[in-house]
Computed example of a mutant assay.
Amino acid sequence: MKAVVLDGFGGLDALVFKDIPKPEPKEGTVVIRIKAFGINHAEMHMRRGEWAESAAVSGIECVGVVDSCPGGEFAVGTKVAALMGGLGRTINGSYAEFTRAPVSNVAVIESDLPWAELAAIPETYATAWTCLFRNLKIARGQTIVIRGATSSFGLAAVNLAVNAGLTVIATTRSEARFEKLRSMGVSRCEIESPDLSTRIEEQKQIDAVLDLVGNSTLLDSLAMVRRDGKVCLAGWLGGLAPIADFNPLLQMPSGVDLTFFGSFVFGTPGFPLSDVPLQAIAADIQAGRFSAKPSRVFRFDEIREAHRVMEANEANGKMVVVHEE
């Protein structure tokens, strides 16, 4: 099968096209004929050698059809999504014509949506849904601040939160992106800054904050929620530097909840992928309740260009790669 293999670590030329053996069926796994897959920042870090683990074939998610499933958990030909479970990290991932994923990290996603649109769903929507409905426990009528809202993850969270009946305040670094957010149902846009809590009208009244900017804004996020309000840290758009001299006694507000989610836990006993309603999310998109179209669609032979666009921060949303039929 054709695959993109990491030839060492480095720039775009580290992504090399090769023919490698197709994965063999194995108990407890599903071999998937890949139709399309999303592009993620994690894969850029893997290519550079900045990730703790990286397999020869990168790619942490995909959509496709079941090619074989020795345990019978999924019928051959079923449309499925797969994500995490070691894909691209400890086992060969989705930058190929086939992949073999653990059964625990595969979910049915039958839909009439084009493969390119289905490929924009798995990683971003599974993670956004879990942060919103599991960690933050959002409810209709609440007000949420989504920091870093024009990232692919942020846009998915905006769609889900608006569709769930919340008032959404979204932050972004550029006023030029306000119009897109408003068209998605955001009630108000704010320019992202580490002192947002001092400028926001609803200081100490916010029900929830989904912070995708990271450690540089986390204390500010905690400062804006009400008593019993919740903050979920789930992204590091502002960099990975830790909070300097963090002292909970002096810096943590009383009576607020701080929670964290990392999608690498999907497929573990506490976080089965089957908990995430990917099928219902696809149905909402197909019914037009919100749009989840990818910002850019690339052919398989354009993966280097997709990585260039991602590295240059030119994506403006979720990018996907589609195999030619």
Rank of each mutant, 00 (worst) to 15 (best):
A126K: 04
I144V: 14
P114E: 14
R140M: 12
A119P: 02
E110A: 14
C131R: 08
A116V: 08
Y125N: 08
T90V: 13
A82V: 08
A149C: 06
V108H: 02
N135E: 15
A119D: 06
V108D: 11
G141D: 08
L113T: 09
S111G: 12
V80P: 00
M84Y: 12
Y95D: 12
K137S: 14
R140A: 15
G93I: 03
V106E: 04
A126T: 12
N135P: 00
G93H: 03
W115E: 06
V108E: 15
T150E: 11
S104P: 00
T124C: 14
A116K: 15
P102G: 05
E123I: 13
T150Q: 09
A126Y: 07
L87D: 06
N92P: 11
R147N: 15
S152M: 02
L87W: 07
G86E: 11
A107D: 05
S152Q: 09
S94E: 09
A101R: 05
I138N: 03
L113F: 03
I144Q: 12
L136G: 01
A120V: 03
W115Q: 00
E123L: 15
T90F: 06
A96R: 03
W129S: 01
A119K: 02
Y95N: 13
V80L: 04
T130W: 15
P114A: 12
I144A: 11
T143D: 02
C131I: 11
F133T: 11
R147F: 05
F98A: 02
L118M: 08
V80S: 01
P122L: 03
K79T: 14
R134E: 15
F133S: 09
S104I: 00
A128Q: 08
N105E: 08
L83N: 09
P114K: 13
A149Y: 00
A96K: 02
V103D: 14
G86Y: 11
S104T: 13
I146S: 02
L83H: 11
R134Y: 10
T143F: 00
R140F: 06
L118Y: 02
T127I: 01
E123D: 14
V108Y: 01
V108K: 15
K79M: 13
R89M: 14
